[in-house]
Simulated scan of single mutants.
Amino acid sequence: MSEPQNRCRLVLVVPDMADAEEQLKAVADALRGGDVASVIVPQYGLDDGAFQKRAEKLVPAIQDAGAAALIAGDSRVAGRVKADGLHVTGGGAELAEAVEKFTPKLIVGGGNATDRHNALEIGEARPDYVFFGKLDGDIKPEAHPKNVALGEWWASMIEIPCIVMGGTDAKSVLDVALSGSEFVALRLAVFGEPASAALVVAEVNALLDEKAPRFKD
C-alpha cells in the first residue's frame, strides 16, 4: 500500500466494463478524487491475453496516481505488467503458496475468509493483508454485517491489516472504519456512475477525515 494514514483508507476495485478505454478513464478519474491506498484489478471473465492488455493500461495509471496496483487473476500477468501486488481470491492454501513465491517482491494478500476459522488459517500464511468479503460482493447499500464483524474482530487482535468490502452506498465506509479495520474497499459506490467517480472518492475521504477513528502508532 502507499503511505499510511492514521485512519481507515480507501481501496478501489476496478469495475467490470466491456470498453477498455471507458474502464481506464473511470479509474483515472476516481484516482483524481483523493487518497486511495490501492486499486485491485480483477480478471472477471477475460482470458489471460485480454486481461494482460487491460492491466498494461490500468497499472501505470494507478501507480502514477500514487496507489498500489494489485492484480486479482493470473500471477504471470502481475509480473509482466509490473504490478505492485497480487490479490488472491482463493483460500488459505492458494494464498500461502503465493506468499511463499512472491513476497517480499510483491504485495500479496486476499483470501476467502468467510468465518474466524478461515481467517486464522489465512493469517498463518502471513499475507500482507486479509480481505473480508468478495470483490463483487457489494450488492446492498451497506457493507455486509458479517464482514464488518469479522473486520472488527480481526483488527482488535491481529497485526496483519484487513480490508473489508463496502456496499453500494459510499457512506458504507463509515461502518467499516468504525470497526477498526484499516481499509475499506469500494466498487459500485464509486464506479456505478463513472462521471461522478472523482467526486465520490473526494466525499469518502472527507467523511473518513471527519469521522473515522484514528489509529494509535
Rank of each mutant, 00 (worst) to 15 (best):
R9I: 00
R9G: 11
L10P: 02
L12N: 02
V14W: 00
V14E: 01
P15D: 11
P15H: 13
A18M: 05
A18T: 03
D19Q: 06
A20R: 14
A20F: 07
A20D: 11
E21P: 00
L24W: 05
L24Q: 07
K25M: 10
K25E: 12
K25P: 00
K25C: 05
R32Q: 15
R32W: 00
G34V: 04
D35V: 04
D35Q: 10
A37N: 06
A37P: 00
S38L: 15
V39F: 12
V41G: 03
P42A: 13
Y44T: 01
G45V: 00
G45E: 06
L46D: 03
D47G: 08
F51G: 09
Q52Y: 06
A55Q: 02
D64M: 13
G66Q: 05
G66H: 02
A67M: 10
L70C: 06
A72F: 02
S75L: 13
R80Q: 14
R80W: 10
V81A: 13
D84E: 11
G85F: 14
L86I: 12
T89H: 07
T89P: 00
G90C: 10
G92P: 01
E94V: 08
L95T: 01
V99N: 13
T103V: 11
P104C: 13
P104S: 14
L106E: 04
V108Q: 07
G110Y: 06
G110C: 08
G110I: 04
H117E: 13
H117L: 14
A119G: 04
A119K: 02
L120C: 03
I122W: 01
I122L: 14
R126V: 05
R126D: 10
R126A: 15
R126H: 12
P127T: 02
P127W: 07
P127Q: 06
Y129D: 03
V130T: 09
F131V: 07
F131E: 06
G133K: 11
G133H: 11
G133M: 12
D138C: 12
H144K: 14
P145S: 15
N147L: 05
V148T: 07
